[in-house]
Nucleic acid binder design. Structure first.
Lengths: 264, 264
DNA sequence: AGCATGCGTTCCATTCAGCGAGACGATGGC
DNA sequence: GCCATCGTCTCGCTGAATGGAACGCATGCT
């Protein structure tokens, strides 16, 4: 009897370990072994064994009350080349942008059909944006996402559409045709706007950071309250920062950055 | 015949995977499969299998020319609670400090006998410091390290001494007794200085960020050229930033943060 | 106090996932 | 052409990983 075999990769050791790590949500500082077992479906002794091993490597850390993600994981993550050079080069520009506008600033890259926020400077009085540094959002409904899509190979947009455009607010673009037109407009303009498409009450203006090949390697955005932030007014500042960063990156080591598009 | 068994944990799957990930140095954007095998001693087919699996999870990414650390690793690392809340709360203070001094700013936490740099704002004209965001340095010879040691349980300092105090420059403190005195002085002063103890030509001033229990949870420092930066002059600014951050952290969720001291 | 529940941990017989030598085709430099 | 090196695949073997069961220990409820 072959019993039930989950066809995701979660029966391998690495799959199990990844299940444990991804069981930590943004709000889970630490979890107990039992809770980990419950969330992942991994039997109790196996959780124990894996946690002990991961702790040996600093990937997780054991505390009197449970398990938390470890500093070595942070270290390794900082080495990821897609964000590493980018972040360091970008920080001065992001700071300038923040000083100039006093609004929340985001730096994001594209990963598959989603954007990953590489850096986030939160404005003191600004809205609590659901994004977080190291967090993910869909590309189709965010300013940075649309800016990135507009300057990425067309198959990426196709993959985004194929992955579906679920409605998130009344303003979300859910029709593939409309999204394609919107992306075309962004490419013309060089600036992407988002007006409450992902989150009610929040708007943003975003510009792509272009590599030497004309493709977007990242995007910079400014986010604020829909009632207070005039996106067209700040778009020049965002554009300035993005252009400056593009130029800066162009002068450094020419790091070609091809992404295999197949990830979903 | 039992053959050679390395007693480190590197014969388990997780150990192997960790070997592969840690094979990436700060300057290795991407490595070929063969190079990975060479660096880790893992046989070629095994490297291949593991890389394919890790790629499925986004931990690494395959490019036409090799393998690189992936965005999901960055994401997971950003969730590590020791740096997560800290970083977000600290960024405004670090920015203020940078604006006020225009010198390189560091934010670091203690991990075992080393410090891990959680954030780094590089001054435009400043020295190229060997640290990097997500990097490690010994605690005994760095400003942030001494600031952290001065406000940590005494067994931590004992562990640091036990781990050895190798000479790095002419000014490195290599005598355990001297280091203990120095740490006492730091505790009195509330500020730690480093004068070319880790790297020739570079000095810094550092202050601890204290939790409600009086222990250091992090440290903030300013770094500059030994010939140009007056550490006593900037120490007030560093102190202000550190105190501000301490207060800010105290008002948030009371995140107790006990560290099992046994890691070496 | 007595009992119940849930926790982390250890044991150990079973087995299947992981292993790696070897072979293969593709690529690129000489 | 040749030789070196690369990534990939196969396949029989085996020992690392597995997880049910049991244990000791907290904590909390009756």
């Amino acid at each position: 009897m072959r019993s039930i075999q989950r066809d995701d990769g979660a029966n391998s050791v690495i799959g199990r370990a990844m299940s444990l790590l991804t069981a930590f949500g943004p709000h889970d500082a630490e979890l107990s072994l039992a809770e980990l077992g419950r969330r992942t479906g991994v039997p109790k002794p196996t959780v124990h064994r894996l946690v002990v091993e991961l702790d040996r490597w600093g990937i997780v850390e054991r505390t009197p009350r449970g398990v938390r993600l470890g500093m070595r994981l942070f270290e390794l993550g900082q080495l990821a080349p897609r964000q590493r050079g980018l972040r360091e080069a970008a920080l001065p520009f992001l700071n300038d942008l923040y000083q100039a506008t006093r609004e929340t600033v985001h730096l994001a890259v594209l990963d598959g059909v989603e954007v990953v926020y590489v850096e986030k400077l939160t404005a003191r009085g600004g809205p609590v944006v659901p994004s977080l540094a190291g967090g993910r959002m869909p590309a189709y409904c965010t300013g940075v996402g649309k800016a990135l899509l507009a300057f990425s190979p067309p198959e990426v947009l196709r993959a985004v559409v194929a992955a579906g455009l679920p409605r998130r607010t009344r303003h979300t673009i859910v029709m593939p045709g409309l999204l394609e037109r919107e992306i075309d407009a962004v490419r013309q303009r060089g600036v992407a706007f988002e007006h409450e498409e992902s989150t009610p009450g929040i708007v943003c203006a975003a510009c792509p950071v272009l590599g030497q090949d004309g493709r977007a390697v990242a995007a910079i955005s400014i986010t604020g309250w829909a009632t207070a932030l005039d996106t067209t007014r700040v778009s020049a500042a965002v554009r300035t920062a993005a252009l400056g960063l593009s130029r800066q990156l162009g002068t450094g080591v020419p790091r070609a950055d091809h992404r295999h598009p197949g990830r979903v």
